[in-house]
């Protein structure tokens, strides 16, 4: 058996890349561990202050629930839509693709000013509450991520054959969607969901301009007033994102199966 070896140049590039990502993190970690009183290493005071600040828990809970709401609305809205477009109206795919690019093109600041004006007359339970106005705006912001993830998922399966096979066995449209199609685009839906989670957990412009207190606005507030706590908070939010990514890997692990296409075997 041939012995596997790694080229020295590959090792060098690996170290350079690792340094690029790790040095700022290590620097932030060391900074966050400085004592608030002495400015010297090492103290967990910054972390202690953060985790004992009820605003931290309040804003992180709000942002997390907003993420979940955005994910649920996006999935309910986009899964059937993308399914139907792929199945019955494939000519509309480029139109949907174009529409999905709009949130990328329109800067969030313009979007939020437009939406604030648009919803000005809306009832207060919607306009004044984060779970109304903010969630709606976040669905728009997450549209491209959710759409392109789902689009890739739907393209990876033989949608027509699976749908027809399911229907010929007596399944209704709803049963077909929930028991045949969804399990087979699960990884794409999870991918889109975690991208949405990452966006909502980090969205600052809309929340700030609409004067809602979310996790990113809390980070911004801490950043302006308490430097060590801000570094600790940065690492904590980094850890949350990593936890989300690992959850994605864990949930999706071992579930993907080769896509079946005729004449490949």
């Amino acid at each position: 058996m041939r012995r596997r070896w790694i080229a020295p140049s590959a090792v060098v590039w690996l170290l350079v890349a690792a340094a690029f990502f790790l040095i700022p993190l290590i620097a932030t970690l060391l900074f966050s561990l400085r004592s608030i009183q002495t400015n010297k290493c090492c103290s967990g005071a910054a972390y202690s202050l953060i985790v004992h600040d009820h605003q931290f828990w309040h804003t992180i809970r709000l942002s997390f629930l907003l993420s979940l709401e955005t994910i649920v609305i996006s999935l309910l809205l986009f899964v059937p839509t993308v399914y139907w477009v792929h199945l019955k109206m494939p000519r509309l795919r480029p139109v949907l693709g174009f529409m999905a690019l709009v949130p990328f093109v329109v800067p969030p600041i313009i979007l939020v000013v437009g939406l604030l004006n648009f919803y000005k007359g809306a009832p207060s339970w919607f306009y004044d509450k984060p779970y109304g106005f903010l969630a709606t705006t976040y669905v728009i912001l997450a549209f491209p991520y959710m759409y392109f993830a789902l689009d890739a998922g739907f393209r990876s399966i033989d949608l027509h054959t699976l749908t027809e096979a399911s229907q010929s066995l007596g399944a209704s449209w709803r049963t077909t969607l929930t028991r045949v199609i969804l399990p087979n685009i699960r990884v794409a839906a999870i991918g889109g969901s975690f991208l949405t989670l990452a966006i909502v957990m980090g969205e600052f412009t809309v929340a700030s301009l609409a004067t809602f207190q979310t996790f990113p606005t809390y980070i911004q507030f801490i950043n302006e007033t308490q430097p060590y706590e801000a570094a600790a908070l940065s690492l904590l939010s980094f850890g949350i994102v990593w936890a989300a990514m690992l959850a994605l890997l864990f949930v999706g692990r071992g579930r993907t199966r080769p896509v079946q296409v005729a004449a490949t075997r």
């Binding site: 399966i157 229907q167 087979n184």
Partner: peptide, 27 residues
């Protein structure tokens, strides 16, 4: 089509990838 009671075998492999052979037949 779901009310016609027609069994169909397709040209493309049409088994549901997320189900085992038994679960496919049981569907």
């Amino acid at each position: 089509p779901n009310r016609r009671d027609m069994g169909m075998v397709f040209q493309a492999y049409s088994l549901f990838p997320n189900l085992t052979a038994e679960q496919n037949v049981e569907f």
